[in-house]
């Protein structure tokens, strides 16, 4: 396990340039540190993917960001203010969908939103009905607004949860698995919604296991495992932390491997007619040229840029079993 998280942000930005900043954030339950010395930096205006395996401490981190759980050590600044002290000033600007939607089953979608809206600190009672209608329309629930929540499908519940997060204009949205249980149309709508909210200048913290989804919408990401941050920064630089691999298909694997080794490539592996190796600083085109000049019969030559998934697996491990 890496002890020093890679910090790929160019320079540590000034505090007001960060929508979320945690310093040494730690939470221990019993003797176990579920979140361990986390220094998360979410730039204002970014769509920030927060990634990690099940049980890696994502949800506990989010709960600490929102003041639901008290940190054992460290501090949280949200929108430039200290949490949980400034909760009453900060949280009205923060929309949340944490660990799935939760509503009163015996109330309709509309009544649920009305109650949630009324729970806020500012009593804009006169415009409440309009706000609720607008939020319902935004997530495509207008037609089912007066059904009881009990009768909603999983996707509809998720939509209502998003509607609650979007009830008021927000400068920060914290969304935990927002497309969980949604149909493809819903998933696409949510993606567009996130992009639209971000285009309006809001910061979005997106927790998701769907790496393709994160690649599509996020500008930045952080990866945590076992409660520790292992990487964070712009998506581009995160990908670059994983080495590009080249694969040669040839009739002379022995010589090909020797050439690649001479060039200084790492992790050389031979499988059947394929030789693959990890680039260090070499350019793939130079490798190809060297192979040909060394009389290796090249049938095909592929250089594959790593995906976010490669980075993720490299940093968090292959295992299927939950880490704890």
């Amino acid at each position: 396990m890496q002890t020093d998280p890679m910090n790929l942000a160019p320079d540590a930005p000034a505090d007001d340039a960060l929508a979320i900043r945690t310093t040494g954030l730690t939470k221990r339950f019993g003797g176990t540190a579920v979140v361990d010395d986390l220094n998360l930096q979410v730039p204002t205006g970014s769509v920030f993917g927060f990634l990690g395996p099940n049980g890696s401490g994502k949800t506990t981190t989010i709960r600490m960001l929102l003041g639901l759980v008290n940190p054992s050590a460290g501090s949280v600044r949200l929108l430039g203010r200290s949490m949980p002290e400034a909760a009453n000033r900060v949280l009205p600007n923060v929309g949340t969908l944490v660990e799935g939607p939760a509503f009163y089953p015996w109330l309709s979608g509309r009544r649920n939103l009305t109650r949630i809206d009324a729970a806020g600190p500012d009593p804009l009672r006169t415009t409440r009905a309009d706000r609720v209608d607008a939020a319902l329309a935004q997530v495509g629930l207008s037609a089912a607004a007066d059904k009881r929540y009990r009768a909603y499908s999983l996707g509809m519940r998720q939509r209502l949860g998003l509607a609650a997060a979007l009830l008021r204009p927000r400068s920060l949205l914290i969304l935990d698995e927002p497309t969980n249980g949604m149909d493809p149309q819903g998933t696409r709508e949510i993606r567009n919604l996130i992009r639209a909210v971000a285009a309006d200048g809001a910061t979005v913290l997106l927790c998701s296991h769907l790496l393709s989804e994160v690649e599509q919408v996020c500008t930045h990401a952080a990866i945590i495992t076992l409660g520790r941050l292992v990487a964070q920064g712009p998506l581009e630089s995160l990908r670059e932390t994983t080495t590009t691999r080249v694969t040669v298909e040839t009739d002379d694997t022995e010589r090909a491997a020797a050439v690649l080794e001479r060039l200084g490539l790492m992790q050389i592996a031979v499988a059947g007619a394929l030789v693959s190796a990890a680039l260090d600083s070499q350019r793939p085109e130079d490798c190809c040229k060297a192979l040909v000049l060394a009389d290796v019969g090249v049938r095909s030559f592929v250089s594959r840029r790593p995906s976010l998934e490669d980075t993720y697996v490299e940093l968090t491990g292959e295992g299927f079993d939950v880490a704890r």
């Binding site: 009205p92 660990e99 939760a102 949630i116």
Partner: peptide, 8 residues
């Protein structure tokens, strides 16, 4: 959790 993060 949603009531408390409204914040209530």
């Amino acid at each position: 959790r949603y009531l408390l993060t409204r914040p209530y």
